[in-house]
Design a binder for these strands. Structure first.
Lengths: 222, 222
DNA sequence: TCATAAACATTCCGTCTTGACGGAATGTTT
DNA sequence: AAACATTCCGTCAAGACGGAATGTTTATGA
């Protein structure tokens, strides 16, 4: 009876038009589903309450499949960090590609970054960051990925907003990107808790206004 | 034998010069020890790994005493939020009291805040913030305390750096404190993970330099 | 087509955490 | 000093989580 059931199953599959997937495809899909579910879980319930079982359920997979690809929670989370980098960088590049090339691109860049840090993906990023802070095993992985991410961002910034004079950037210009980043991150961190204070309405216009003076390379004060 | 032992105990106490503590004192000391241990635990091992047992050990108390004062982990954590506010505000006021009254106080204020967010206390604060983000029970408590904290800070700022003209602060001046806060918080968040990138060396001088123009109330750009 | 390995599923156990309980010790009031 | 209230302590059970062992299905190559 068992082999008959299996044959039936196969026939049903064939009739339903489901394609035969290659091994690499199966693996890639499964891992992607698990990693997406991990990110979703981190963003929604936070790192503390994130359980591997919950991730498996959200991914629509069995716990066994999960444990096959990621033998431990540590490996799952470590891989999720890389996955997060890819997602955030892709979002960033997509948005940058639509930047207006002529006029003041600086305020537009501010809005791009502001939107980026307001995505749930960034909440998951913060969850992992706080986890890595006290997790000796996760810290090196996270630090490495973070370093790669910011260097990519810095490169994009340098191409889009080169220093004015030529080869000698002012300290203000060099610090522009990190300052902008820090401000937006700090702003979104402060309004992270629902019901808490929110300064973005009053702060963001000012940030949009003063950022061009940093990025244009001219000294706006002395 | 039991009463004898008790009497001996009392005698030892008297000889050892230990003062008789009133009930209120006992309670206050015990609760303070537990809350301090909670903050210490949050800062060191993070919220995810913080256990009530660990807190009790660090406080030098038994689990029973802990559960007497804080029947659940939720209550312990909720009370710790209040405790954190008191500690941070006290640290802030202490530092502000030593501010130079004559010269440029703005850079000094920047350093005070920078030192404040680099304390372990602030790490505990961030841990609770991330926890409150996804904890429906903790969120209102945290949001309330956070609102109180920032309003106190804003008041202090307004007294120390009143708007120039008189009663009409510019948008830049109104946003100065939140922007400064956000930047420092974002900066410290980014370098939270050991081994990660650290922009503070290049960013902080610039922040120190430009902050006075915000706080002085003069418009530094057209 | 069949053998083999990769991919996936099911079940179970050891460990850890929470918080509930009874009882002991201490402080306070009469 | 005696009765009462408060504070503190050790033990225990229930539940959740991670991950190991084992069984089943799917793909690939000869």
């Amino acid at each position: 009876m068992a082999p008959t059931a299996a044959a039936t199953e196969r026939a049903v599959r064939r009739v339903s038009g489901r394609q035969r997937r290659t091994q690499a495809q199966r693996v890639a899909e499964t891992r992607a589903k698990l990693l997406d579910a991990t990110v979703e879980c981190l963003a929604e319930v936070g790192y503390a309450r994130m359980t591997t079982a919950e991730v498996a359920v959200r991914a629509g997979m069995s716990r066994g499949a999960q444990l096959y690809h990621f033998p431990s929670k540590a490996e799952l989370v470590a891989t999720a960090v890389d996955h997060l980098l890819d997602r955030m960088h892709a979002q960033f590049l997509d948005a940058v590609a639509k930047l207006p090339s002529d006029a003041d691109r600086a305020p537009a860049m501010v809005d791009i970054l502001w939107q980026l840090v307001n995505e749930p993906t960034f909440a998951a990023w913060l969850e992992l960051m706080m986890a890595a802070r006290t997790d000796a095993e996760l810290a090196p992985t996270f630090a490495d990925v973070e370093t790669r991410f910011v260097s990519r961002m810095a490169m994009t910034f340098f191409e889009l907003f080169p220093p004015a004079g030529g080869g000698t950037p002012t300290p203000e210009h060099a610090a522009a990107a990190p300052i902008l980043f820090s401000t937006l991150i700090g702003l979104v961190v402060q309004r992270m808790v629902p019901g808490g204070p929110d300064f973005s309405e009053s702060v963001m216009p000012v940030v949009r206004k003063i950022t061009p003076y940093f990025l244009s390379g001219t000294k706006e004060d002395a």
